[in-house]
């Protein structure tokens, strides 16, 4: 892996574009998260690391929805959790509203947590089965010691109504609800502190298709009403196209392409993005008939030992010598369209 990479990538990260008046809410620069693997006969020592997130840079503008897509295991969820400081990043920086948050500790971090929240993938695992809905939704308020008991109760009722649940549900327990309803409860909890930014970690992939649309519509409605900013992690590409303003594609711990949603879907430049999009069925029998699928060879390499050079080189249909030697940088090929590929210049 090239030594100079962090610097160059940091420099070449998407510009703030303050010229067009958009405000950057979250700025991620060269974020890395490595999980150590320990081994040893008597005493454990670190022998290797799973490089789940390996130098990711992007910006999220206020009020927009950034989609983060990729195969499972490519580090999407870890990226989202590391941004929220649920995992301590190995290196790199995350700026929220211009403030560095990777070195926040204790109370400062707790205060910061009010502004950014998370919605989880599995609606069955993300709610404590031993707590009533009222206690679950009120938990952020209790933790941050906001309001009196009565005020909290009113706020919980308000939140439940906001996500489309009956406020009378407060005394019920999670197992009495369907997956979609549970996801709404999780959403109500994450909204309790009036956050600005929400990381939605595959919030719909565990739901029935009929329920998915409801939840996505709810997310959109809440964004409009409350001015939220989303990082929407998903592997359902069509849903991402519908919901997101911009999309980032990840492969093996790295971002390979970022662009406006329509731009990315109509003009994918990175060979991985092309392969990924070619797998999406088109709801038009004529087009579907002629759809060319790009089938990638082999499997995703292990994140413990990613290949030298471009980490897509083992499966890339168009790789050349330089791909096996140098890690490509993320560069702005077209306005607001960033690609990390040696072949796209």
């Amino acid at each position: 892996m090239s030594q100079s990479m962090p610097d160059t990538q940091a420099k070449s990260a998407p510009a703030t574009s303050s010229a067009d008046g958009r405000k950057v809410l979250v700025e991620v620069t060269d974020l890395k998260k490595h999980f150590p693997i320990k081994s040893g006969i008597l005493f454990q020592r670190e022998v290797a690391a799973v490089k789940a997130v390996d130098g990711v840079s992007f910006k999220i503008y206020e009020g927009e929805t950034l989609g983060l897509v990729g195969e499972s295991g490519c580090g999407k969820s870890t990226t989202g959790r590391t941004i929220l400081q649920l995992y301590q990043p190995t290196s790199g920086s995350v700026k929220f509203d211009g403030q560095e948050i990777t070195d926040l500790k204790g109370n400062a971090l707790r205060r910061m947590r009010r502004k950014m929240q998370m919605v989880f993938q599995d609606p069955y695992a993300s709610l404590n089965p031993r707590m009533s809905v009222g206690r679950i939704v009120a938990e952020p308020l209790v933790v941050h010691n906001i309001g009196t008991k009565k005020e909290r109760e009113e706020r919980v009722a308000e939140l439940l109504e906001l996500v489309g649940l009956n406020p009378y549900f407060v005394r019920r327990y999670p197992h009495e609800f369907s997956g979609g309803q549970r996801q709404r409860i999780g959403l109500a909890r994450s909204l309790a502190l009036n956050p600005k930014f929400i990381v939605a970690d595959e919030p719909i992939s565990a739901l029935d298709v009929s329920i998915q649309a409801q939840v996505v519509n709810l997310l959109e409605k809440l964004q409009n009403e409350l001015g939220l900013t989303y990082l929407f992690i998903a592997h359902d590409l069509s849903m991402v196209r519908h919901l997101c303003d911009r999309v980032a594609v990840m492969y093996l711990g790295k971002v390979v392409e970022i662009a406006e949603s329509e731009e990315l879907y109509t003009n994918p430049l990175h060979p991985y993005t092309q392969a990924l999009l070619s797998a999406v069925p088109v709801p038009d029998p004529v087009v579907e008939e002629t759809r060319q699928r790009i089938i990638l060879k082999g499997d995703v390499p292990s994140p413990i030992n990613p290949p030298k050079g471009c980490n897509f080189n083992t499966r890339c249909p168009v790789s050349v010598d330089v791909c096996f030697d140098q890690d490509p940088e993320l560069v702005e090929i077209l306005p607001d369209h960033w690609v990390a590929c040696h072949r796209v210049i």
Binding site: L86, R110, N128, G186, R189
Partner: peptide, 22 residues
């Protein structure tokens, strides 16, 4: 490793609360 514990951490719950409540 359950997500509800992670959710509690995400809202800023401290260790004591996570251990005793969750």
């Amino acid at each position: 490793e359950k997500e509800f514990v992670e959710a509690a951490r995400a809202v800023g719950a401290n260790n004591r609360r996570i251990i005793f409540v969750h």
